[in-house]
Each structure stands twice: as C-alpha cells, then as structure tokens.
Nucleic acid binder design. Structure first.
Lengths: 214, 214
DNA sequence: CTATGATGTGAATTGCCATTCACATTGGAG
DNA sequence: CTCCAATGTGAATGGCAATTCACATCATAG
C-alpha cells in the first residue's frame, strides 16, 4: 500500500503523461482521476496533492501538447533553410507525433467538442493558432526568398497544411488504424507543394547579415 | 404534468433533433437522457418508450447526419453538371450545414475522441468514407470530361476538400465563432481549384445516351 | 537522531447519470 | 362508447465520478 513518495515536480509530469496516455487509449471518457491514479499505483485522493482538480490536470496536458508542437516547429526550422523542405519535415514530424500520441488529437477534438470550460477552449485556440502562425511564418519566409509563390496567402497555405493531417487523423482514428495516414500525407503534400512552389524564378538569397532563424 | 402523447415516429425525430441541438450547445458532455427529455418537456424514463437506450439515440443522430451529407451531395450534383461548380456548391452547402448544426462536427469529433463503442466508430467511418467517396466521384467525372486535371488523384483531392472545412470548423469552435469559416473556405477553395482545374484543353463532352446523374 | 512538512491512504460525501418498473393516462380502433 | 395498447410518470436503484478530510508515513533539514 505504501507507494514511494516523489517530489511534486516528478509527480506532476507523471500525472500529465498518464493522462495523455489514457486519452490516447480511451478518449476523454477514459480520463478519470481514479484512472490516472490507478495507472500510477496511487489512490485518487493522492493526485490532489499535486493538482487542484481534474481541470488543472487537463491544463498540464495542454501544456505538454503546446510544447511538443513548438518543438516540431523548431526542429523543422533547424534542419534546413529551405521553406518547402521545412514544411515537408514538419509534416513528417507532425504525423509521427499524432501517431505516437493518439491522445493529442483526441484532446484537441474533444475540447472543441466537449465545450468544456471556455477558458480552456481559448487556451487551446491559442495553441492551434500559434502553430498555424508558425507554419505561416515558414511560408512567408519562403516567399521572401522567392521559393514560394508570392501570390499565395500564407495563412491559407498554413491552414491547408493543417488540412492535410486533420481529416487523415480523423479517418485513421475512426478506422481503428486502418487508414494510411502516411501515404495520404505524402500524396496530399505533393499536391500542396506543387500548388505553392515558385517555378521558373531564380531563388533570391537572403540578404547578408545575421541569420534570421525565427 | 400531462404531456401530449405522440406517436413513436414523431417522438423519435424530436428526440434525435433535441439530441443534436444539445450536442451543438454543450457537446457530448451536455447530452444526457435527462437533458433531452427536459428539452422536450418529458421525463427521462419516457424516452425509453422510443429508444432502447442512449446509444440508440446517438445512432439516430448519426442517421440524420448521414442523410444531410447525402442530401448535400445530391443537391450539388443536381444544381450543375460542371465538376468544379459542383464542388464549390458542395463546399457552400457543407459550410452552411456545420454552421447551422454545430452538433454535427462535435459528434463527429467526439466519436473519434470518445472512443465510444467500436461499432459506432465503424458506422461513423462508413459515413465519412461515403461522403469522401461522393466527392471523389465528382472529381472523377470531372476528369472524364477533361474538366479536372487527369494527373490528380481523386481520393486525395476529396480529402483535401474535407481538409478545407475541418480545420476551419475546429478553429471556429475553439474561437467561439470568431474565426471566419466562410472567408477561409473561399480562399482555400480558390487555391484548391487552381490546383485541379484542367487548363488549355477543350472540354470533352459526355458521350450521348442516358444522362448519368450518379 | 528527530521533528516537521510534504506526500500518500482510506473512507465518506455528494451529485449526476442511465436504466427499470409499477402505475397512470390517453387516443383511437372497433 | 369502451377498451386496450401505446405513451407518459415518478420513484427507486446502482454505479461511478470528483472531491474532501482526518490520519498515516516518509524524506530530509537541522
């Protein structure tokens, strides 16, 4: 009965992870304080030492999702300077992320769905918006150097990018993993790519001076 | 206390409608047997005269959604023979549908989300798949008459079509209606259209004989 | 070593939910 | 008009959820 005592920081991480895993396996319905506690070998009331309540646990999960999305943006930008390659890499990372953490799309959708607290909806809106903004930023920088057609609206392209993954993720979930997200991702990306790639123009290099990485 | 008695057919429709409305206003969390009953001026146990349980009510809602999607496909096909115009019209209808029935995207997402009964997930998968199939069909027929570029994969185009609406609907929900779905739809569609429209080729008319409307 | 605050436990509370059932009412067939 | 099957009612049941609280135990600072 005596579970090892851990400091609050560690526990908070464990709890957020366990919650995300539960979301992945059974959706919001499976995410109860008891279930999270059970998964950690704790008793439900123990979680209240580390979180004020279930809502705060969800907030912590959202934080984790925000961080992962941000990581992917940074990694894809660090990997290459070419806008189109960045997008392609980001697509791969993003697909891998939601494949390995089914809880992420599930929470994103269910928050839109459950109409939970308006504050959390706003928070999630900020997260998605900031991700879309990051993608749009990549597009805009690609336009600056003549790599991406200048007559495309960066925000729209960014949404289309999201539109590659989202319906695919939905079908993947609904089909119980049968739908081939990766294959669809490749095809849809090749279509989007040919849609935005600037052709027949020499690439104008970035101006000299300090490298803008963001 | 004495609520008028209605035949089961009428009640079943009322119940499904009330459930869809509740989904729209508060998501799955707001959809309880009691809430549906209250909305109809009934007592919870009364619903069990018309549905075996909550699951069956959800099934009825899914039926309604399936019918509406199917209606939109048929209406857009009946309105014009041109594939691109059909798609544009379908997009308008689809946007209007989810704007006026917030419960639809919410149920679709929450089923993916809640991991509810596997059977219902399969049912929903079938519904979405059949809608995508209908869109792909429009694309293919456009390709047959040289209106749509033949080197595009019809299924991928259909998914991209879905990808216009889905992320927009998500942001719309999350932002509490602030995000402009219609505007985004127009922009994204104009991009997709220029991506798939066949250019510089004379349109090859349909062969003679009975008009294929499906 | 020991005392104290942080962490974990078990039981109790409260509330909502889906569902059932015995009973009441009603609308329409005959 | 009468009766019966269909429909609606109200109370009860059982389950599970989130949360609280008094108490136990541990880790570690001093």
């Amino acid at each position: 009965m005596a579970t090892a005592k851990l400091d609050t920081e560690t526990r908070r991480e464990q709890i957020a992870d366990a919650a995300l895993a539960l979301l992945g396996s059974g959706g919001l319905a499976a995410l109860s304080v008891s279930a999270v506690a059970r998964r950690l070998g704790l008793v439900p009331s123990a979680l209240y030492r580390h979180f004020r309540g279930k809502d705060r646990i969800l907030d912590a999960v959202l934080d984790r999702i925000r961080d992962r999305l941000h990581d992917n943006l940074e990694r894809s930008c660090a990997a290459t300077d070419d806008a189109l390659e960045r997008l392609e890499r980001l697509l791969d990372l993003h697909v891998a992320l939601i494949r390995e953490n089914r809880g992420i799309p599930r929470l994103v959708f269910s928050e839109a769905t459950l109409g939970g607290s308006p504050e959390r909806a706003r928070r999630l809106f900020g997260i998605v918006e900031s991700f879309v903004g990051g993608v749009a930023q990549i597009v805009r920088r690609g336009q600056e150097v003549g790599r991406v057609r200048a007559d495309r609206d960066a925000e729209t392209v960014a949404m289309a990018f999201l539109g590659i993954v989202q319906p695919a993720a939905l079908l993947w979930h609904l089909s119980g993993g049968k739908f081939d997200v990766t294959r669809h991702g490749r095809r849809a990306w090749s279509m989007l790519r040919s849609e935005i790639e600037a052709v027949g123009q020499p690439v104008r290099p970035l101006p000299d001076g300090p490298r803008r990485n963001r």
